[in-house]
Amino acid sequence: MLNVIVREHLRRVGPLLIALAAIAAALPVLSVRAVFGHGLAVDSMRVLSTAAGMSPYFPLLAFIIGLAIAMTAWNADHDGGHVYALSLPIPRWHYALLRLGAGLLLLVPAFTALALSATIVTAAVELPPSIHAYPLALTIRFCATTLVTFSLFFSIAAGSKKSAAWGLLAIFIVLIADSLYQASTGSSYSPLFDVLLASRSPFSFFFGQWSLVDV
């Protein structure tokens, strides 16, 4: 069953998946090119700052990939009003699990592309003393962030129109409440950001050490 679900999902997102995997493979190359392209690879400070400048693109890509695969996971069912899926002889949770599994499997090419590209390009350059490449660490962080993004948006997309509307309403209310809090206290302190960026929040994965090369 998983096999056909994967094929079905792949059939819809094949080109997108190839494009995203290509970007995932290109990003380490571009990162290393930016870091070492200026010819002063011996300048550790410059290497670090340039690598840091490239680092936001990795979580951004993780977000895009997670979002894209999650949103496309249910598109075919949404189009048909879920009639076909619901007429299959398996419980709803089982079908959702198959869709989840298929989505997770479709993330693998992007992960592999990033891991291979990062490993190869960092092995191909000579790093200054005290500077190290972290292709595996970056890939693991990338995977974790993509998976969390994917599962978050997958669970939202799995809901009905009504539950999505409730979710959006809740987000809207929280944003308003946060703005009102700021307005009433006259400070720029945002409890919402405190919650969103707390170390255990699902958004915290987007922050942290995303550099391909680091001390």
């Binding site: 879920h82 619901l86 709803r92 949770w93 959702a96 699990l97 989840l100 190290h132 972290y134 660490a137 970056l138 693991i140 962080r141 974790a144 962030t145 998976l147 969390v148 599962s151 978050l152 997958f154 669970s155 799995a158 809901g159 009905s160 539950s163 170390s199 255990r200 699902p202 915290s204 994965f205 942290g208 050490q209 550099s211 680091d214 001390v215």
Partner: peptide
């Protein structure tokens, strides 16, 4: 070093499981 901490791996796993479990509650109605 940039190695992801165990906390990151645990936390991300827990969030994935939590969101995954949430998605399994997808209603047939």
């Amino acid at each position: 070093p940039s190695a992801p901490s165990g906390a990151l791996l645990w936390t991300s796993s827990i969030w994935c499981l939590a969101f995954g479990a949430l998605s399994l509650r997808s209603t047939r109605w």
